[in-house]
């Protein structure tokens, strides 16, 4: 989960309040999936317990959530380490895609037909993402590009697998 790191990063910029952090997260990082208030406060609580953020005193007259959070040097170190660690390059091969091809061949159905359908579904997604980029903000375009390249990677795999279907069938039926 990257929510704790997102909060540390936002706090490294400047000290902030829980509800502000939620707003910043939702508008820049949430990708249309807002983080729950509960999760924000729970995470802040855990970070405070571990000494990665410090909690200011509640402002007088404010609600119970008017606590200002700041990052500690321990927190900064944690955030920097996270940022400097590349994400494991997961093989993005969708297991289901792969399973369908192999199963189709094993049970003697048309893997080609399945790949054609899959390709056209993927291309439809590419069209949608491309259309969505037109009026989007730069942040949303970046996200759309990321999705586009991933869908494209699947399509390459689909093309290559199609070109190898005969050989694959021979190997599976040996």
């Amino acid at each position: 989960m990257s929510v704790p790191f997102a909060l540390l990063g936002l706090l490294e910029r400047e000290p902030s309040y829980g509800y502000e952090l939620k707003q910043e997260y939702d508008s820049h990082l949430g990708r249309g999936r807002p983080v729950q208030f509960g999760q924000v406060y729970q995470t802040l609580g855990r970070l405070a317990r571990d000494g990665k953020v410090s909690v200011g005193v509640a402002e007088p007259g404010a609600g119970p959530n008017r606590k200002r959070y700041s990052i500690t040097s321990l927190g900064v170190g944690e955030f920097e380490r996270w940022l400097a660690t590349p994400v494991a390059p997961e093989p993005h091969l969708q297991t289901e895609l792969f399973m369908k091809v192999v199963l189709a061949i094993l049970v003697g159905r048309s893997a080609q037909k399945y790949l054609d359908l899959q390709r056209s579904a993927h291309l439809k997604r590419i069209r949608e993402l491309t259309a969505g980029k037109r009026s989007a903000s730069l942040i949303d375009r970046l996200l759309a590009d990321h999705a586009l390249f991933r869908v494209e990677a699947d399509l390459r795999w689909i093309d290559l697998t199609e070109a190898r279907l005969d050989t694959l069938a021979q190997e599976l039926h040996r």
Partner: peptide, 9 residues
Amino acid sequence: EPRVAGYAD
């Protein structure tokens, strides 16, 4: 290229 085809109908 799929990403070029993405501009088509």
